[in-house]
Design a binder for these strands. Sequence first.
DNA 1: TTTGTATCTGAACACGCGTTCATTTCAATC
DNA 2: GATTGAAATGAACGCGTGTTCAGATACAAA
Lengths: 199, 199
Amino acid sequence: MARKTGSHSEITGPRIRAAALQLFARHGFAAVSMRQIAGEVGVQAGALYLYTPDKQTLLFDLLEAHMVELLDSWSKSEAGGDPVQNLEAFCRCHIQFNLSHSDSLFISYMELRNLDPDNFAKIEAYRKRYEDALEAILKAGTEAKLFSLPDTKLATMAVIAMLNGVNTWFREGGRLSQDRVERIYWNMVRRAVGAKGFS
Amino acid sequence: MARKTGSHSEITGPRIRAAALQLFARHGFAAVSMRQIAGEVGVQAGALYLYTPDKQTLLFDLLEAHMVELLDSWSKSEAGGDPVQNLEAFCRCHIQFNLSHSDSLFISYMELRNLDPDNFAKIEAYRKRYEDALEAILKAGTEAKLFSLPDTKLATMAVIAMLNGVNTWFREGGRLSQDRVERIYWNMVRRAVGAKGFS
DNA sequence: TTTGTATCTGAACACGCGTTCATTTCAATC
DNA sequence: GATTGAAATGAACGCGTGTTCAGATACAAA
């Protein structure tokens, strides 16, 4: 069946990951059984082991894919403009990515503790790279006197936490359009970092 | 043994809740067994059922206690000053409470999905009361032209998310004192809401 | 000393877990 | 039509789960 890699269906594998993602997000890693995942895919539990060595690796693969996609998404959006423009791009990219990957986002914050130490360290390294990307923008802006921040590391955490919060309440078709939400959050961030020419 | 209520030890009950709190925070509700909790207390699993009807109720009691304490903490800190003072008090109270109840905070965000619908609704009602307290401050400030906010509901969520973020990285004895962190976050919040006389 | 009661044990119940593996299915290739 | 080999089954493994409960224990009151 497999045409290129020489092993495993190229259809069932992704379906398993999609089902696992949704179920882990909904009920939590520990509360979801391999039989439930298999049931969602329409297969027996044993078949899952043709695609993943174990449940732990399945979780890790989902988290790693999320972080890789996130970093990839930012590297494509990176405008290369001045710090203010870069910060706006970062905020919008972050909100957009998170809202279109809400299950992965949820898991990547909630299920870290279910990773064994090695896997945890790998995911943390990705996360650090992402945070560093934001901090670089804030540092550049602070040095150029465009922002007013006593501590860029702390501001980095504050901005990410604030933007992540959107996912806890935003629902498409609700009171505010996504673009409007992005604009309002960007204005709050812009003020929080003390961007000049804006009060 | 019980002297006042006529049932249950007044020592073992709290010890069970403390052990459950710590274990749930560390490993997650679904991943912790009643036997583990009992082991932590130095008792057999069956004994837990003298203090809680089941595992689900044990979780609910922890979450409810957290929300009650949180609301209580704010009602005691409420200064009754102008919106700017109230907002500062809210930010400081929130950070202080969360840092001194980090396990409860963690659980109360992570384990909501493990509550059955009735219990979930009750906790959400507490949470709404708390959010409303913050939104009332933001509304009052906006109407008094002290803040500049296009949407107080959205600002409420943004502020809470930002403040909650402190718990993900702050460690006592680290680079910054808690008071310094409170001050920096308060300044970011103050600017994010567009407080006058401050850029 | 006897009684009463709050506390706890330890075994048991039915069930679901992650994982393994010999066996079956079945489309593609020769 | 026979052969191949990946894909999937379904039963089995040992173990841990939440919960129950009859019985043991400890201790205050009578």
